[in-house]
């Protein structure tokens, strides 16, 4: 299990327990997190699992692939330098304590 700290747009935070190897999107959707839709099921097709990764953890995640970068141009909320798609973030023990913030809208 990897613990991830999710902070929604209103500032409320919750801890998500993610199975190793699972994507952040899958874990969030399974846990019923309202601020992550993941409509396409993880194919990097819909930009509805947009998250902002806390700067302190930026170096710990692999750089986004071209498909993810293309899709990040399609987010409804502002794209920031730390914008990622949660479906492309596969978690391992290395990410214990990861902090991500949710945008105010996904659609």
């Amino acid at each position: 299990m990897v613990n991830v700290n999710l902070i929604d747009a209103s500032g409320l935070s919750q801890t998500l327990h993610v199975l190793e190897g699972q994507s952040l999107m899958q874990a969030a959707v399974s846990a019923g997190v309202a601020g992550i839709l993941g409509e396409c099921g993880g194919s990097a097709m819909c930009a509805t699992c947009h998250v902002y990764v806390d700067e302190a953890f930026a170096d710990q995640l692999p750089t986004p692939l071209d498909t993810e970068l293309e899709m990040l141009e399609c987010t409804v909320s502002d794209r920031l330098p730390n914008s990622r798609l949660a479906c492309q973030i596969k978690l391992s023990v290395l990410h214990e304590g990861l902090v991500v913030r949710l945008p105010d809208r996904q659609q």
């Binding site: 959707v29 993941g38 409509e39 396409c40 099921g41 993880g42 194919s43 819909c46």
Partner: peptide
């Protein structure tokens, strides 16, 4: 129902490329 995660558009690299237009 939260029907997300269904396989109607497939999944992964071959997941339906037109799914946002279909929706």
């Amino acid at each position: 129902r939260r029907a997300r995660g269904h396989m109607a558009f497939g999944s992964g690299i071959h997941g339906c490329v037109g799914q946002v237009v279909a929706r």
